[in-house]
Every structure is written in structure tokens, then in C-alpha cells.
Design a protein around this nucleic acid. Sequence first.
DNA 1: GTTAGCACTCTGCCAGTGAGAGTGCTAACC
DNA 2: GGTTAGCACTCTCACTGGCAGAGTGCTAAC
Lengths: 351, 351
Amino acid sequence: MARRMRPTSGPLDPRAKAILQAVIDDYVTTASPVGSQALVERYSLGVSSATVRAILADLEAAGLLSHPHTSAGRVPTDLGYRFFVDTLLQLKEPGANDKKLIQQGLAGSNVEERLGEASKVLYQLSHHAAVVLTPRPSALVVTKIEFVRLRDDRVLAILIGHGGQVQNKLVAVDFAVSPEELVQAANYLNELLRQGVNIEDVRGRILNELDAERAQYDVLTSKALKLGAAATDLSAPERVLIEGAGTFLEAPEFAEDVKRMRTLFKALDEKHKLLTLLDRVQRGREMQIFIGAESEFSSQGDVSVIATPYASGDTVLGTVGVIGPTRMDYQRIIPLVNFTAQVLSKALGEE
Amino acid sequence: MARRMRPTSGPLDPRAKAILQAVIDDYVTTASPVGSQALVERYSLGVSSATVRAILADLEAAGLLSHPHTSAGRVPTDLGYRFFVDTLLQLKEPGANDKKLIQQGLAGSNVEERLGEASKVLYQLSHHAAVVLTPRPSALVVTKIEFVRLRDDRVLAILIGHGGQVQNKLVAVDFAVSPEELVQAANYLNELLRQGVNIEDVRGRILNELDAERAQYDVLTSKALKLGAAATDLSAPERVLIEGAGTFLEAPEFAEDVKRMRTLFKALDEKHKLLTLLDRVQRGREMQIFIGAESEFSSQGDVSVIATPYASGDTVLGTVGVIGPTRMDYQRIIPLVNFTAQVLSKALGEE
DNA sequence: GTTAGCACTCTGCCAGTGAGAGTGCTAACC
DNA sequence: GGTTAGCACTCTCACTGGCAGAGTGCTAAC
């Protein structure tokens, strides 16, 4: 019997939008439910609290706000944030200082370092936990293979790829290799991957060659191929770096609820949920924002993830992002993540 | 006027020791102060609670136990744990299953991976946070240098060391290098570090040569030395890997005290305190146990750190350990850390 | 459509209370 | 002389009822 009930998906009039925005603004900073009174006091809305109350009731009916209990103020729902992010968001470009810090922060001298630095700087600037999905080793586009002999039957394989990426692997072989054979094996394999393909494909080719009869007769070729097969057998998965998980303790809604905190940290420690989520972003090839229960990451639906891929040239390597309470300053964090990914991509792409 | 007051440092009679051990055992499992009644019930001490009370009072006078408040049971002090660890400890060897898990867990195919796995397996078996101090890049004992040309003025330097350790660095040079020059430069530099010295020393030699007049006249030598100088200019510091920090939330003494939790996580996120602590262990070249306030890590003195160095052959590379609440099962964790370090060292040393 | 007014509800906080746990002391016991 | 039972004492913790405050939703007037 609501006077002005509107369809859930219907458009919102500008005043309702303004009030939704105000509720979110207020809740993001104060972390406590916001009432009609507080809204008219803090924001010059030009109407009385009773009117605001009516609109709040509408917004609640539309599923954008909710009520912890009868006599509490309103809190945005996941849907409310979603609507906000999709239609009301006014991005705040990172300040010149933040930009400088990001650029300086990513000055590391190799890929691994830079990824670590990206997570660190993102954590420090966002004041939320930062996450980085590292490149999948087996997706490396190999441009060169090197072998270093450690012992008669023990060889260190070094795979070099685009953007200064390097993978190394200890290979135990069941035959003796001389230094000269190693050099020739490397030459032979490098010939095989002239135009640069990823490790998995290289491996495919090598295994093919190995099957071909030719290899049966030529000991040297056989050794080279066996070495190549072992070197490209990278089972190591991509990893997730997490920096600054402790920031969740600064958010009262977590700090006050031990149980919630515990399940969150368990999820962070186990990482695989986060990994599949970030992997999805990587495949999607563009920024994605998961609000609350939208990601299956948190069953409680109280954390949001903002993540975007980074690349070297045209190849997407991984994902960088921020994970924090649903109550998060999206307007500030989104551009921050974006800019970090850009700088990171540039740093990785220019070599 | 205590009947049987003893000097703080004096020896404890066997019964007092047994009771101290019982208090610690009980407190470690229950996390709540333990009273005289509970002791006689749970441990067959053969005396009444009144006698136990008298002994508890003695132990408290000696500084080994303390009293949260008048009507609470006893809790071990840092000194109490210390005494326990130093004189009462009966190490419990890891079970066959745990040993197997550690050995299987460290099967990674390069150094980085193995360190990550070491922290993971230690976290999973100890149910506390695991820490690993990675090798300091600049301490790497280089056995070989390789260069890969990425662009005219951009070179990827790869430094290979003992135990399959690899460092790579992107080098921007202010002169053009041809592929042939790169090969020659690598040969020249590899000649320079024949018998294997660490990066810092290599760098010293290179800079020396660069000063010598010879380099002034020979362009090739000069380029090689400049490349070498740039490649060995590793400013990257050792890092600390932390796995399973969320386990602190399982300990009631932390979960119930948000403030304590917060300062702990802040310290873990910042890492440098932990880094200096672990570095100290590395220099000490043997296992060290820091109980509560003994480490400057936690100002509250509520966490303990058990850490031990790992090595490749004779060279200590870093540290591996566990960090958890002071109330920790030392008898089980100490051998676990030890065994992990042993397996890790073996894995890193055998190549 | 907007607003003032009002009854209603729910939380958070406070003080008070009683049960329970554990101590330390004393006096009796072996 | 060490050991023990008994007891008074202290402190915490959980529970209670009451009260102030915040915020809502409804209604009637503007």
C-alpha cells in the first residue's frame, strides 16, 4: 500500500538519486547507519526529514537500502552500491602526489619486484588490502632458453620471455650432459621457438618432435628435446600476493565481529577463491567490480573486490586490485587501481 | 613473610617443576588461567589443592607465573615460558605423516617456489603463522652471468648462483650493444668471477677494473664492465613471506582484544621489525626462540617467534620460522620448524 | 506533495545482583 | 614440618530491569 512504490528496476528521480548518494557518502565515512535527521543536517537537501524519510522508504522498497532494525538508520545494500557504481559514480582522479608515489614505487628492476611493489603501493595509498595475481608461468611467451650445468645430471633451465619475464627450473636428467651438448641443445631449442610462442605450445612442439622418428637416431637431438621437455614442464600455478590484510581490522564492522573476521581471514589465507576470482577478471580483460555477495568470495557478502588486468604489450599477464569492506570509497579506489595497472603495464611493456 | 620464598634464580625442586609444566600444558591448550583445583583434577600430582596453591605462590614469587586478578588462576609469564623452554622442554619429533607432508611440500622446481611452499606447509602443520626470510639478492654467490638483449639499449642480466638460485635484472644502458658484444661481455665477466664470489664482491672487482686505466682504451672491455656494474647493482632487499596470519584470530586472547589484534597486524603488515628479527637469527646461524617481550616485535609481549636459518651447502641463505601467540605448543613447533629448515636446506643444497 | 507531530520500537548503556571460581590464611593433622 | 581441610574474602562474569536516545512510520494539517 506504499504511496509511491516504484518498480525495482525503474528509473530513480534526481532527488532520490541525490539522497542515495548522500546515504552512501555518509555511510562510507562514518560506518554507522544514517537516519533522515542526519541527512538533512549534513547535506543541504532543501526538504524536511519527513520527506527524506518517505524517499528512504522508497529506496528501501526498491532494494537499494536496508534497515538493520526498526529504529536504526539506513544502510546501502549490495544492490544500492551496485546502482551507485553503475550510474552515480563520479571518479576522483588520483592526486598528483599519489600518481608520483605509484610511479616511483614501481621502479623495481625485474618483474617479480615490480609486482610486489605494485601491491605495496596500492595498499599504502588505498588503505585497503591490495592483491596481485602473478603471471601464470606456463603462459610465458618464451623468446629464449638457456641451460646452466650444475652437476652431471642436474641442469638449471632458464626461460626468458617478453617484458623481461624470467622463469627458472631445476631439471634432473637421467643421462649425463656435457657442457658442449648443453650449448647445442639450447641452440637447437632456440631455433624451434623462433617466432615466440608460449611455454605450453613450445612444450607441445617439443613433445611432437620427440615422437617423430628422427629423434630416435640422433642422440644429441634426443637429449636436447628431453631437456626441453623437462624445462617446459612447469606445474607451478599463478600466485596471489596479498598486502595489508590487516586493514580490515580498521573497519569497525569487521573489528567488532570476530566470527566474520575469522571467516574472512580464513578465505584470505586459503587464497584459491580469490585466485579464481582474479583469474576471471584476467580472462575478462577489463576492470571488474564485485560488490559484496556478487563475488562468491565472501559468503557473508561484506567485502568488495575491485580488480583490473595488467599486461605487457598486448598480452594480459595478470590482475591487480584492491579488496576491502563493501563500504569502500569506490570513487577514489577505482581510479587508483586503474592507474596502478596502467603504470605497471607500461613498466612491463616497454622492454 | 612467605614461608618458603626462594631466590628468583634458584633451582626449583622437582615437584615445582612438574607443577609449572602442568600449568603451561594446561594453559597452552585451554587458554584460560588455571587454578589449583583444576591442576589436581587433571594431573595426578598426589597432593591436595592447598599444597598446590602454596607451590603456585612460590612460582609466582619466582616470577614464573602471574595472576590476572585475585580470584583467577595462574598464567605463565614470559620468564615462565623461558624457564620451561630452557630446562623442561621435551621435544616431540614430528610424526611420520608430518615429515612426509613437509618433504612432499618442498618439491618445487626452483628456489622461490620452494620457499613459498616451506611457509605454506609450516603454516598448515603448525596452525600458526609461518615466516620465511628470503635470501638477500646481493649476497648471491654468482657462478655465471648471462645477458639477453631486449632492445638496443635494454639488456636483461641473469645472475646464476649456487643451489640453483637465479637473479634477474633489467639493465638500461646508455650505449648500443650488439649481440656479439653481449656474448663477449658475458665471457669476459664470467672469467672475472671464476672461483665464485658474492655479488657485492663481484661488483667491487668490476668497479675496480673500471677505474683501472686499461678500460679507458678498450671499448669492448669498457662496455662489458659497465654492463657488469649495472647488472650487479641490486638494491632489492630480502623479503619476508608471511603465510597464515589469520591463525591469530583462532587464539581467544587475540580475538577478544581488537586493539591488540590491530597492533599485531599492523606490525605484520609493515614487516620491517620482523625482518630485522629474522635477520638476527640468520646472522646467529642457529635456531632462536623469542618469547613474548624478548623480541621487540610486539610491544605487548604476547607473541613468540621460533626461527632457524636455512642454508645451501655451507652458506646460510635466510630464515624460516613460526610466529604465534606466546601460549604456543613449543614442544611440537620447535621440532617442526627444525625439520622444515633441514629439508629445505637439503633441497637447496643438493644441486 | 510536503511537513509537523506523535506513538512506537529497538538498541545501548548503566547499575545492581548473585553465582562461581580461586585465592590466601589459619588451625588442625600425621 | 610439611600437608591438608575449612573458611572468609575478592574479583569476574552473566544476567536483569530500567532508561535515554535515535529513528521510524503513520496521520492529519498545510
